[in-house]
Design a protein around this nucleic acid. Structure first.
Length: 433
DNA sequence: TCTGGGGTCCTAGGACCC
DNA sequence: TCTGGGGTCCTAGGACCC
């Protein structure tokens, strides 16, 4: 048995909102989120008929509907309530939930992790609210349910990793929606896991590789040769080995502060594009979206990356899925310059393949100390829009790993007009209710 | 996944420098 | 030069997460 006496032992909560988008929509319809049969369906043009963004627990249970399922695979049944997404509303709910968290812990101990997940270090504050961490978790659940109607799932752990595992592997499957993992539970709760890619940080590829090495469970991983793991996986191997013993030093120390930072936009085109001019219009638009975001953050980019995904036909013909091409540039956030760089990258590598996916991202961000006024943008900006932008910006700043993006709403031609008002590629909805 | 969208981190080879 | 060692930067590609 490992000696855990030297490991930091904190009281960490990893909290997520159960079926978040679907629950918010249920609440808005005065339905109980755990009993409603509701599906949030994005029908943006390039989803080619629609895509399930979220399904309520009962929709999953009774009709087998899962996230990212296509509309055509969703059963046609009158009992299923189908609604479009309202991304801006979900952002508001997320902010409200985090406000409630602030009544239980200091702001610096709360780390929003995604639109529906937050990590809270309760070590210094839990005793103020109950006799056990579990009791405090229950109080947080009840308060959020009472004030907002949303059910929370809570993982409690001795460190962030154990809290995350407790959330994913236990809390989501219990009636109380609370799971609790301590170092002493690792043998009984973590080691029996054989579906390795169920665990956070282990994906399909890594699980396959481990299986091929004869590692079929977390017990096997914990009893494998750490030097071999390091050899095969690099630093990730050492991390995997530590995780198999429930040990997580880096996550606490680094507090999830991201090292790299980038802004990017991407889209699946509504159909296959084969004409160069047509493709370049969209490249230009996306470059301008990214440029606008960089300017809004008073940054300039020193690296630009273009990703091109081929159509299925071109994938078959070339045996390649597409290409990525990046280059170092002089710091800029200028629309025209960034668009020109992106097009240069495209022309350097493109050989007539049919295109279905385009992504542009900018990295190596530096402060832009020169004040730049974009007259066109300023004129268009209403107060309400500015408030919304500010909200989205706030959430972005607080989310190290956010999935939210407010697309710029003004551009000509291509797909930009169709996509105006989308958030993360989905309908923003009415944000003023 | 015959196509959602936005991110971060790691590895590795070649260029280049001292 | 039948030839060192260490480091950083740049670019491509892979993997994973929500």
């Amino acid at each position: 048995m490992y000696d855990y006496s030297k490991e930091a032992r904190r009281v960490v909560f990893m909290i997520d909102s159960k079926s978040f988008y679907a629950s918010v929509e249920s609440v808005k319809l005065n339905l109980n989120p755990l009993r409603s049969i509701l599906v949030v369906m994005s029908t943006a043009k390039n989803t080619n008929g629609g895509l399930v963004l979220a399904a309520s627990p009962m929709a999953k249970k009774i009709f087998g509907i899962s996230n990212v399922m296509r509309t055509r695979d969703v059963p046609k049944d009158k009992r299923i309530i189908v609604v479009p997404p309202r991304m801006n509303l979900y952002i508001k709910y997320n902010l409200a939930i985090n406000e409630i968290f602030k009544t239980f812990a200091a702001e610096e101990d709360i780390q929003p992790y995604s639109i529906d997940e937050s990590l809270i270090d309760m070590t210094d504050s839990w005793k103020l609210f109950g006799d056990s961490p579990r009791e405090v978790a229950r109080k947080i659940q009840l308060k959020v349910k009472k004030e907002l109607g949303i059910y929370l799932t809570v993982g409690i752990g001795d460190n962030p990793l154990l809290a995350k595992f407790a959330l994913d592997m236990e809390a989501k499957r219990t009636h109380s929606l609370i799971g609790e993992w301590h170092y002493e539970d690792v043998q009984d709760k973590l080691w029996p896991v054989t579906q390795l890619d169920d665990l956070w940080s282990i994906g399909r590829r890594t699980a396959e590789k481990l299986n091929k090495m004869g590692i079929k469970s977390m017990y096997d991983l914990a009893h494998s040769n750490p030097f071999l793991l390091k050899q095969r996986f690099g630093v990730l191997g050492s991390q995997l080995y530590a995780f198999s013993w429930g040990i997580d030093r880096a996550l606490i120390r680094d507090k999830y502060v991201p090292k790299a930072k980038s802004y990017g936009n991407s889209q699946v085109l509504p159909r296959d594009y084969r004409n160069q001019a047509e493709i370049e219009i969209v490249i230009r638009e996306i470059a301008e979206q990214v440029a606008a975001r960089i300017r809004a953050h008073h940054k300039a980019a020193t690296v630009i990356h273009l990703g091109i995904g081929y159509s299925f036909r071109s994938k078959e013909e070339t045996g390649k899925s597409g290409f990525g091409h990046s280059m170092k540039i002089d710091a800029t956030n200028d629309n025209g310059l960034l668009a020109a760089y992106a097009i240069t990258l495209f022309r350097n590598k493109w050989e007539g393949e049919t295109v279905r996916n385009i992504s542009i991202s900018c990295a190596g961000l530096v402060n832009d100390n020169v004040v730049q006024l974009d007259l066109f943008d300023t004129k268009q900006t209403s107060l309400k829009k500015r408030d919304l932008d500010r909200t989205v910006d706030q959430i972005r700043q607080r989310f190290g790993f956010t999935s939210l993006v407010k697309l710029s709403s003004v551009a000509e031609g291509g797909t930009a007009i169709e996509r105006a008002g989308l958030v993360g590629g989905h309908n923003g909805g009415n944000s003023y209710e």
